[in-house]
């Protein structure tokens, strides 16, 4: 099921939490929502799930703009901070959620057992939720979101509180689910989006500031190629001059004089690797290091959201 968001807006008092956002998510796509705290990620998700009413714009889920019961049944939602009934045993809670999602009583027990297995809750299934550790509570939250096998999954920070092993497991699970379903997840953890998401949406102050795959975003932010090189056996000043003289090179920085390390920025749309190599060969220098610097997602994120 596709989700189409058109000019969505929501204000809390005078503050605009979400300001005219439009985007689209297709079936089989995992969309990562990135943004600093208070950027409007959760608000957008709450509007998609129907908890908040938008002030402006529309949300189209599977071709229908009306979020009625039959549409709600197709959405699984893990809210921020993962609220749970702490005095309920895990199994009863999953039963309750399945029943509220309109599942027939005859399918519920099998489905609950399945979710307990998938989310690794088997050891804790008879405990009250309040007795569980944070990581297990998070698994219960995920289990209740997926219990009715929804076509759309909205996960607000799904991996908070999990240990690294669990994070890997949950990521694998989300990736697997994402093949047939429409998944939107929000996170602060940047490697997580890179590892799980097909597409990234960065929002800041209620507006979309970037939209694309991790690779395209990186390219956008990168602009010119930057290389870190080390050339042995030459004179620092001599090498510096020769590097600057290359036509493909835009700027050169000396990083460490004693070690002959430089940072070289190429001209736009040109790569300077070959020129540098040839120059070294011609002068009898030894090129012992050449590291292309990639703009990390952190750099992109900071560049777009720090004002």
């Amino acid at each position: 099921m596709d989700i189409k968001i058109n000019n969505l807006g929501k204000s809390y008092g005078l503050q605009k939490a979400v300001d005219n956002i439009s985007f689209e998510v297709k079936t089989g796509e995992i969309l990562g929502f990135l943004g600093p705290n208070g950027a409007g990620k959760s608000t957008t998700m709450k509007m998609i799930t129907g908890y908040l009413e938008p002030d402006a714009g529309s949300i189209e889920i599977g071709g229908s703009t009306n979020l009625d019961i039959s549409t709600k049944k197709r959405i699984g939602y893990l809210p921020e901070n993962n609220p749970l009934y702490l005095d309920m045993p895990v199994m009863d809670y999953l039963d309750y959620c399945a029943s509220l999602q309109g599942m027939g009583w005859e399918q519920i027990p099998t489905r609950v057992r399945e979710m307990v297995k998938v989310c690794g809750l088997n050891v804790e299934k008879h405990k009250k939720i309040g007795e569980l550790s944070k990581g297990f509570r998070q698994r219960v939250g995920l289990a209740q979101a997926m219990i009715h096998d929804p076509e759309i999954l909205i996960l607000d920070e799904p991996t908070t509180g999990l240990d690294p092993n669990q994070i890997v497991e949950i990521r694998e699970l989300i990736k697997k689910l994402g093949r047939e379903k429409t998944v939107i997840l929000s996170t602060h953890i940047l490697p997580e989006v890179e590892a799980t998401c097909d597409r990234i949406l960065i929002i800041n102050r209620g507006q979309i500031v970037a939209d694309g795959t991790p690779t395209t975003l990186r390219k956008q932010a990168q602009g010119q190629q930057v290389l870190r090189i080390r050339i042995e056996e030459g004179e620092v000043d001599n090498i510096f001059e020769k590097l600057r003289a290359l036509t493909s090179v835009a700027a050169v920085d000396i990083l460490e004089k004693e070690q002959n390390r430089f940072e070289v920025q190429s001209q736009p749309e040109v790569f300077s690797n070959r020129d540098i190599f040839k120059m070294c060969v011609k002068n009898g220098w030894i090129l012992s290091e050449m590291i292309p610097l990639e703009a990390s997602l952190e750099d992109i994120f900071r560049g777009l959201t720090v004002n």
Partner: peptide, 14 residues
């Protein structure tokens, strides 16, 4: 207070 109302209201119930 506990936020579970959000869960309840996003389930398939009115």
């Amino acid at each position: 207070k506990t936020g579970t109302i959000e869960l309840l209201m996003t389930k398939a119930v009115t």
